[in-house]
């Protein structure tokens, strides 16, 4: 009985530590052709559906599923979302503040007026500002990278 219990506990220990330090996801990143996030977001239409590699500090991670992370841009007040399908890659919350490289395809998400209003209202709410929905008179586009590979550096 003791042997059985010890085996079960050892198995649980193994399960709880396996791959705890896996900080590369998917395919290898292409670190040679890194594009600045500021350049990417300055003219995103030039890169939509093209393969890009970006680098930056991780400044946000999806809390519950780890399905996205935000990389800080080299320009102030800018960031770029790296978004995966749930479960394809799971970014750890503890990675916030670390540098990361991501290779993948830049995707455009088009928002209609109502969606743009909701999006901007949520940003204003987060910043603690008042927001007038009528100030949004047209739709907008958001850009994010759908990665094929991510490397979180130490």
């Amino acid at each position: 009985m003791r042997t059985l219990l010890a085996t079960v506990l050892l198995a649980l220990l193994f399960v709880s530590t396996v791959n705890a330090k896996a900080l590369t996801f998917g395919e290898a990143v292409d670190a040679k052709d890194t594009i600045k996030i500021s350049a990417l977001l300055a003219s995103p239409q030039n890169y939509v559906d093209k393969k890009v590699t970006v680098a930056g500090t991780i400044v946000g991670v999806c809390e519950k599923r780890g399905c996205w992370m935000n990389l800080a841009s080299d320009a102030r007040f800018e960031k770029l979302r790296i978004k995966v399908r749930d479960g394809d890659m799971v970014f750890p919350m503890s990675a916030k503040g670390r540098k990361a490289l991501a290779t993948g395809y830049l995707k455009e998400i088009k928002l209609n007026i109502e969606q743009a209003q909701r999006y901007k209202a949520s940003l204003a709410k987060r910043a603690g500002k008042t927001f007038d929905l009528a100030s949004v008179t047209s739709g907008m586009s958001l850009y994010q990278v759908s990665p094929t590979g991510v490397k979180i550096l130490d």
Partner: peptide, 17 residues
């Protein structure tokens, strides 16, 4: 690391997460 999300929001990230 530190990060200015906007002129009104400043973030500090610590070594232990």
């Amino acid at each position: 690391a530190t990060y200015w999300e906007s002129p009104q929001i400043y973030k500090v990230f610590f070594e232990e997460g």
